[in-house]
């Protein structure tokens, strides 16, 4: 079991990781961030991606799919962004957000590692 800081540190050890954050999508606020660059403000990314997560959840609800988001992948020209809502009993309303460099990362491995981190995260 890992706490918030360890989990974010672990997320940053994933190959190609640029930044990671744990975000509360009821408010859009970050509970913790790691990495990032001077140009990339992770709190801006968190607030913006909160709207993405909410929109997708609303869509699933409207389609009456009766299902949950396991993860979301957004592919940019030079980056991958992975969003993973937390499933644990204390993780309600939170998601992990990971930014990866497309050239330096292995997507399948990164996705697997993020799942492990999410499963082991204890708040």
């Amino acid at each position: 079991m890992a706490n918030l800081d360890t989990a974010l540190k672990d997320a940053m050890t994933i190959d190609g990781a640029i930044g990671a954050a744990l975000v509360d999508y009821t408010s859009g606020m970050t509970l913790g961030v790691a990495g990032g660059t001077p140009e990339i403000d992770l709190s801006v990314a968190a607030a913006g991606n909160t709207d993405v997560v909410r929109a997708k959840m609303r869509t699933i609800e409207m389609l009456k799919l009766n299902d949950d988001i396991e993860d979301m992948l957004i592919t940019l020209g030079g980056q991958y962004h992975i969003i993973r809502p937390l499933t644990g009993p204390n993780g309600k309303g939170l998601f992990l957000y990971l930014m990866l460099s497309k050239t330096r990362s292995n997507l399948a491995l990164a996705r697997h590692q993020l799942r492990t981190i999410e499963e082991q995260l204890e708040l």
Partner: peptide, 8 residues
């Protein structure tokens, strides 16, 4: 409301 976005 996305209050983080409001604060930004």
């Amino acid at each position: 409301i996305n209050v983080a976005r409001l604060h930004l």
